[in-house]
Design a protein around this nucleic acid. Sequence first.
DNA 1: GTGGTCTAGACCACG
DNA 2: GTGGTCTAGACCACT
Lengths: 124, 124, 124, 124
Amino acid sequence: MNIIISNHSDIPIYQQIVDHIRQNIVDGILSSGDALPSIRLLAKELSVSVITTKKAYEILEEQGYIKTVAGKGSFVSKQSITLAKEHKTSDLEQHLLAAIDIASELHMSKDEIKDLLDMLYTEV
Amino acid sequence: MNIIISNHSDIPIYQQIVDHIRQNIVDGILSSGDALPSIRLLAKELSVSVITTKKAYEILEEQGYIKTVAGKGSFVSKQSITLAKEHKTSDLEQHLLAAIDIASELHMSKDEIKDLLDMLYTEV
Amino acid sequence: MNIIISNHSDIPIYQQIVDHIRQNIVDGILSSGDALPSIRLLAKELSVSVITTKKAYEILEEQGYIKTVAGKGSFVSKQSITLAKEHKTSDLEQHLLAAIDIASELHMSKDEIKDLLDMLYTEV
Amino acid sequence: MNIIISNHSDIPIYQQIVDHIRQNIVDGILSSGDALPSIRLLAKELSVSVITTKKAYEILEEQGYIKTVAGKGSFVSKQSITLAKEHKTSDLEQHLLAAIDIASELHMSKDEIKDLLDMLYTEV
DNA sequence: GTGGTCTAGACCACG
DNA sequence: GTGGTCTAGACCACT
């Protein structure tokens, strides 16, 4: 589990952890049934408070990605891959919708958005 | 000046005001030299605190959109239109870059993004 | 009386008027006994409120530069030149003292201040 | 952090705080990475409102002297020393330029300014 | 504990 | 009338 945390980001640390684990699931680094590091171990590795890792795991559990068993640890759930992909797709749509919104405020056409997209793509 | 403010949004009220005024500038509703409503009047109209409208105006001044003169009022600056358009374009690019980022995490191609864009466009 | 007023300055308009008249006295443009324009005329010429020119004249009278006679107008006083020069000298000293202060905060020596002064002089 | 605040000064309290912290940076009392007192603690110590200390920290952050992290605190940035020295140097130049300006209005020569400077220096 | 946002008042200087 | 500064509270999210 290689998570890089930035204190200076405006994204909360717990959110960064959630995002990273979700990405690991999408990428197949974490598969259904795999055990996650304990909240205490992860907290140590990332040099953050246990409260922070606990909060991240709580969110992941709430959203159905992991299943925590008292005294045993946390494990990746079966639906996790599907859920993670759905989540990211929804995220993607949010950004595209926001882009469409702003483009309309700038009186830009759909083709102009696509042109801009092409431009940004070649830059990356 | 028709600004609709939502208390329940996670976007701070002062930011909503800033965004709205910026949009009015892009749309030509506010032109260079125009006077903005006084912070107190706007506060009354929006039913928010004077401090909130003041903060919005402070940000707009910092970013060069308006010029505030003590005892006189606030006025739209000359460069405001250019600035506002640049700001929105940069915003748009941020969203598209984020979209490209997430798409790559989902192993989606550029054409798939465009297809999704088309889909979202027809929905709107 | 050629006074140029700037609305965008952070110096109050009445202060700008006071400063200009004081400078005219130092430069000999206004001499002891000369009549000043009426507050109403001056207000018109400068496109400012009568209240503003009135305030300027009040300050000048308070500080002994002019003498206002009801129904006749305002006249430059005898001591005005001396007063004006003293005022400006005091101003000059304030700036030099402030400079000395800041220089000491920067751990700069007196000679270094003079060097900087020479540099700024040649630029002007 | 020994800051002495004057309520009766015409310099706003938040500005006094900004100046003091800037001076502490120049003097090496505050170094890169150091934590500043929390806005609430500082407010208590100085017997001023939290909003006042917050405004001071906001200005310092805007100008790049400190970095504020929500939930963590405020920390002195790396470029702070350079920035602070540049700021003070610019301040110094402003005062010297103003002095040159007034001196010319008084028809004083450069050497006369230097003489005055020497006089003021011995007084201090 | 930290900062971020917000409210409802107040007094001041400027015009 | 305008903005500039300030106070003394409050609730929220993050650690």
